[in-house]
Design a protein around this nucleic acid. Sequence first.
DNA 1: GTACTCGCCTAGAGCGCGCTAGTAGAGCGC
DNA 2: GCGCTCTACTAGCGCGCTCTAGGCGAGTAC
Lengths: 331, 331
Amino acid sequence: MADVAERAGVSRALVSIVFRDQPGASPQTRDRVLRVADEIGYRPDSAARLLARGRSRTLGVMFTLHQPFHADLVEGIYPEAERLGYDVLLSATAQGRDETKAVEALLGHRCEAVILLGPDAQPADIDALGHRTVVVSVGRPVPHARVDSVHTAEGKGVRQAIEHLAELGHRRIVHIDGGRGPGSVERRRAYRAAMRRHGLEPELRVIPGDHTERSGIDAGRLLLDERDHGRPLPTAVLAGNDRCAMGLLMTLTRAGVEVPRDLSVVGYDDSHLSHLMPIGLTTVRQDAVLMAEYAVRFAVERLGSGAPEPREAVLDPKLTVRGTSGPPPGV
Amino acid sequence: MADVAERAGVSRALVSIVFRDQPGASPQTRDRVLRVADEIGYRPDSAARLLARGRSRTLGVMFTLHQPFHADLVEGIYPEAERLGYDVLLSATAQGRDETKAVEALLGHRCEAVILLGPDAQPADIDALGHRTVVVSVGRPVPHARVDSVHTAEGKGVRQAIEHLAELGHRRIVHIDGGRGPGSVERRRAYRAAMRRHGLEPELRVIPGDHTERSGIDAGRLLLDERDHGRPLPTAVLAGNDRCAMGLLMTLTRAGVEVPRDLSVVGYDDSHLSHLMPIGLTTVRQDAVLMAEYAVRFAVERLGSGAPEPREAVLDPKLTVRGTSGPPPGV
DNA sequence: GTACTCGCCTAGAGCGCGCTAGTAGAGCGC
DNA sequence: GCGCTCTACTAGCGCGCTCTAGGCGAGTAC
């Protein structure tokens, strides 16, 4: 910075002004400074900047590798953060790198706020984190904790899905649940409620699973196995999320079960995957971009205005009917 | 830090020593300092630390969201970096966020080295970057540039795949290529060479594609369409990568083409996806963990030892035969 | 006794910026 | 001519840490 100042014939302070895009420098000087900086490859040191300013203007994002919906969310976080003048730091959870570790890394880099995508930690731990810094949980509400959250009205989404299937004439509608995954408890509960509402309580069935392809594959195998032992296939399956739906579809299709002729499948998320399917996956759309925008805005607003009451954004999901759902066999 | 020093009755320097785990403090003092720090919730400010130390001990990783193989690589980078005492910063490319932007973000955070996963930039730009900082390119060699690189011997992998198919009796083997994706040029070339070696030059056919599911779907539709117009399906397809193979499989399976009975499919990468398929994807395995380790080690070693000649690690890929390949129809 | 080492500790400079207070000079009204 | 404002710029402190140089007392060698 001193070099730039010297070569441009100005003071360091002026260089600082130019790089912060602040008033107080003539256009010519501004130009000259920027040109010189470019020449000698100068770029402001964010560590020093952070130190001097006392603020990092950085948002930390914890996400899970291999979770396409998280990728969708991150993709939405970047532009919104940039718009509000914030930097984004990513920290992934992975094998051997749990959520605590990922979050500590973010805090160590002095992120002012932390956005947790589908956190799996105990509510108490998240609450504790919320007392240390600004926290936004995406996909999973954390009641009674000092954190903002953004999620969809799982109930509505599931209700729409079941309604859609019931209207098509389905009765044997199975739900592969998402285990401890974000939103799973609510989806499970909503599934039960919706089935009852349609008088399908006797058909109610939840197969335990999680939010990976594997659980879809396993559930598919289970269903096929049962069919081979005389128990009829369900006519429709509501999967825990799109990845699970994908696994299920692959397994069933391979076994000669034609979707949606023999069986309808509904996913959840509307991640990239669902568009990519040859026939398109009928799924409950969560608007990743909108969720990302809410998350960033919550974080930034809370940073600005002290600490109001924890806020919760509940977005409406929307059933997106594509090719994997149709009338049950024989209708 | 001053608070801690005061309350522990020592100097700030001593606190610093304790937190850096350096010799020069008695066990009792060490204990006292740590206890006091814990009491008042002190944690060292990494920005200030970084600034004072002049080194960040941080590696920057540029990757692509939605690219499962990148997730595999990142998963391998974390532990190796930790082992060598380095921190990892992630910066994703996405829509509206090109490679330049992603890399600038990393440099702004004073990463000492940058690891590029499957960079798409011009070799000249990568070379320029290599003159500014330590750079390792993963998946794509950058000849004549001042960067280290780690990639697999694409030729060998493709050769093994074609050999495998040819031995099974396949002749009409089509290659869906990876467009500008990393390794694509080499794979395309190797495909041509291998086909010639097996006397299959007349059957040689490359369908343009890229490294996404979409290209697999499109290629699948093309092939089906051609079949409907009288041109027979190929008996085997070598996809540009696993995602492409997935898209292709979905399309073909949906259309009643049974894999591998009617058609064999071979992928490339052995990313998470391939294990998850119900029958398992036959694919050319790139060892993500090993590649990640090489990348990190290259970066760290180059940081340590000035700037030796650019190095290149070429790892042997290995054909992993699973369920999507078998003898051609009629054999 | 002196001289030297060694373990434990401190003073204080400086890392690269941001920011506050302040200056120099031009333009303006009267 | 004076005081005023406004723009363009500068001096220099301080952010929270690391690190070098050095101090101080106890132990050891001769």
